[in-house]
């Protein structure tokens, strides 16, 4: 009779709950099994490297934005400050660095525009507009805006 009383019912009122009703129960949360990943996991495959390089284009974007604001500040300081600034910019080392920055910006632009069909699904009269048309429209906008910037800033 006594042993029968120890058969767990699964109720909270059981003296040994929850251990008695669930033999797997442990007081502490188990440690998850995690595979250790090396910090340079993204160098293993070209696709991973491209993904990380694409994510790192945030830094050229940051630099160029600060550069444009810096140029505005220099312009507000008068002709002499601007002359010094231009001399700095013409230094071969800085030009080489800026060419690298420009390459990073172009990588950002190309990867961003190539993803537009995934972010933008348009339907006209119930038909889905094909991806190439959306990409093409965005490249067209890029070309047009770049042309306008060139015409305003360098065309005259």
């Amino acid at each position: 009779m006594k042993s029968q009383a120890r058969i767990p019912t699964g109720r909270i009122s059981d003296p040994g709950y929850p251990r008695a009703s669930n033999p797997e129960y442990t007081r502490h949360h188990p440690r998850w099994y995690r595979r250790r990943m090396p910090i340079f996991w993204w160098l293993r495959k070209l696709a991973y490297t491209k993904f990380i390089l694409r994510e790192l284009t945030s830094q050229p974007v940051m630099y160029v934005t600060l550069f444009l604001l810096g140029k505005m500040w220099v312009l507000s300081r008068g002709p002499e400050a601007y002359e010094t600034f231009i001399q700095w910019l013409s230094h071969p080392a800085l030009l080489a660095f800026h060419a690298l920055v420009l390459a990073g910006l172009l990588f950002h632009t190309v990867t961003w525009l190539n993803l537009t069909p995934k972010a933008l699904v348009l339907r006209v009269a119930g038909r889905k507009i094909p991806g190439w048309a959306i990409v093409g429209a965005h490249y067209g906008a890029w070309l047009g805006l770049s042309g306008a910037i060139f015409w305003i800033l360098a065309g005259r």
Binding site: L102, H108, L145, S146, A154
Partner: peptide
């Protein structure tokens, strides 16, 4: 916005104008 504008803006302000 940065994808569409920054390459041209940077090319003109940082490379072609100083050169």
């Amino acid at each position: 916005l940065t994808a569409l504008l920054l390459p041209a803006l940077f090319l003109v302000t940082a490379i072609t104008a100083p050169m």
